[in-house]
Design a protein around this nucleic acid. Structure first.
Lengths: 145, 145
DNA sequence: CTGCAACTTGAAGCCCGCTTCAACTCAAGG
DNA sequence: CCTTGAGTTGAAGCGGGCTTCAAGTTGCAG
């Protein structure tokens, strides 16, 4: 078993193109050692970072946010418990929000799509008068930008 | 209560910029009637469509996929039960996948972040030898592109 | 020690999801 | 009527997340 991976190996193993891996490095999401000849050599742990990046991306989190999360982790080899506890908490909220959103979306589709109204939270049929309209001017559907 | 909404009203109510609403229309995600003077008038139901669009976007679904979903809904005013059952099933799988992804991500952060390894599914500490390496060449972390 | 695949960089290009701008028209209150 | 804010279009521009290209270097198998 090798100690480190070339960019090609990491690419195949992670399923992410080499060009993307280089891009991630420039963006500060990955790091790599260099050989005498200036080629990248990745620690095996970078494989996990890449997985983390892709999963996060798939659920709509930007590279910027991902970088922030990754940065405050094994940063200075002294990840004070307080630091990661706080970070984990931050992400937990973000993720919980998204999970709630998804679950609602799924259940609404499941439960009410039949009436053809594509309701969210409340079917038109069971919500005559358009509840939203009564929430005052400028009412939003709780989808902060 | 008004029958239809101007683009400005829809914008305020949905929290989405008018320019984005016009863009959605060009992309085939929304539809609007026109006044004699060519101004858009949206049916109230479009408010729900916009909410659906934004929620979907926030969890990483592209406008293209959203359009596909919306298209096969109250399309010809005759949404055969079979049609939407199938569609709903399709999305259910997509959404379930994402929910699983998110839940895992959240739990992993919560549970193992403490060791500083940012493991996914298995902490390095409890997975010596790098399990992934043993899954044969080209092994992926189940993150299809 | 040679040859070829894999690697390097920087710059340019591409698609998505909008926003901005210019130039103009519409709708409604005074 | 007239004014003024809201709406219209098309074209251009922009940031994010890459990919592609060109021109060159490295590293390993034979």
């Amino acid at each position: 078993m090798q100690e480190s991976l070339t960019i090609g190996q990491l690419s195949i193993r992670s399923g992410v193109a080499s060009s993307a891996l280089r891009y991630y490095e420039r963006m500060g999401l990955l790091r790599a050692d260099r050989t005498g000849g200036n080629q990248r050599r990745y620690a095996r742990s970078e494989l996990r970072r890449v997985a983390f990046i892709r999963i996060s991306q798939q659920v709509g989190i930007s590279l910027d946010e991902i970088r922030e999360a990754l940065e405050s982790l094994p940063a200075a080899r002294t990840p004070t418990p307080e630091d990661w506890t706080q970070l984990s908490q931050l992400w937990r909220n973000r993720l919980d929000e998204k999970i709630t959103l998804l679950t609602r979306l799924r259940d609404d589709l499941e439960g009410c799509i039949g009436c053809g109204c594509l309701s969210l939270r409340r079917c038109t049929l069971s919500n005559p008068g358009d509840q939203v309209a009564d929430e005052g001017p400028g009412a939003r559907l709780a989808i902060p930008r």
